[in-house]
């Protein structure tokens, strides 16, 4: 059972971790634990069992961020109302300090494609994304944070820059932002743009949370470097530098390390949180 007296109204401006069930005991036993964790919403939409029991226990101890990966905010179809109801039920139950989703699509027709797919940045997309975010915020009765994507390509049809697109979404919906600086770095390398210029153009005053994570390096057809957003290794040095640059503009924020594939033992993840703490303290 959740303790209804417990309240974490906001994420603290400290390091957080993307929670993995294999770290449950170490996380709870850590004498110097993180103050907040993030979970993927869809993993906790079962009816019961271990996932819900662990989340109930963790919710009483850590501030919680619920991070959706299945709403398909950018999809061309209406939002899945059943899924939105599940999300509301989860948020009403777990009472997270924050809810976030992605600037992406994942549902097409009756299919769920289990990936965060890219969007053309056009006025039509903007109107659709804004409508969907308004629907989410109205349903959940809370502000949601929108996360910027990692990009491997662009649509020729795009008429807006990503930063202008996101700024317009904020203007139309009053949503908050989850700024993933690893995604910014990946996109900057893959698309040949300046990461610091991206941060400079980003609506930085609306950032409520920051993500860092690891990426892999491959090459495209022309031999140019192509960074892949794997969340499967330590955070790369240039991403730490970009985090410093970003925090210099935002001031202290909740900063989360994501490590979703080839998940390491707890000490490796803990080491990343210590590094975040160092950057926050600098």
């Amino acid at each position: 059972m959740l303790d209804s007296t417990r309240q974490f109204d906001r994420l603290p401006n400290t390091p957080g971790v993307g929670y993995k069930p294999q770290h449950f005991k170490q996380l709870c036993d850590d004498p110097d634990p993180v103050e907040w964790i993030e979970v993927h919403a869809e993993n906790y939409m079962g009816d019961g069992g271990r996932p819900r029991a662990q989340l109930a226990a963790l919710s009483e101890r850590f501030a919680l961020s619920i991070h959706g990966v299945g709403l398909s905010i950018g999809g061309e179809m209406p939002l899945d109302v059943d899924h939105l109801k599940r999300l509301k039920a989860l948020c009403d139950w777990a009472k997270p300090a924050s809810f976030s989703e992605h600037l992406a699509w994942s549902t097409h027709g009756s299919e769920f494609l289990n990936d965060l797919l890219p969007l053309p940045y056009t006025p039509a997309t903007l109107a659709r994304v804004a409508d969907h975010i308004n629907q989410v915020q109205d349903t959940l009765s809370r502000k949601m944070l929108l996360e910027n994507p990692s990009s491997y390509l662009v649509f020729a049809a795009s008429t807006l820059s990503e930063t202008d697109f996101i700024a317009e979404v904020v203007h139309k919906t009053s949503c908050g932002l989850l700024l993933d600086v690893n995604n910014v770095f990946i996109s900057s390398v893959n698309l040949g743009i300046s990461a610091s210029h991206y941060i400079d153009a980003y609506p930085i005053n609306h950032v409520h949370e920051i993500h860092v994570g690891g990426h892999d390096t491959q090459t495209d057809d022309s031999g140019a470097p192509l960074l892949i957003d794997t969340h499967g290794q330590p955070v790369d040095e240039p991403v730490w530098e970009l985090l410093k640059y970003t925090l210099g503009k935002t001031g202290p924020k909740p900063v989360l390390v994501e490590w979703d594939n080839d998940v390491p033992d707890w000490p490796a993840l803990q080491a990343e949180t210590k590094r975040i703490a160092e950057v926050l303290a600098a």
Binding site: N114, D115, Y152, V154, A156, A157, N190, L191, D220, S222
Partner: peptide, 24 residues
Amino acid sequence: GLENGTRQAAGNRYDVYRNNVTHS
């Protein structure tokens, strides 16, 4: 209609999404 950052055809960059979907 898919391009890299220098307005060239996206080529195998599209395969990243193909691989992500199939492998996940």
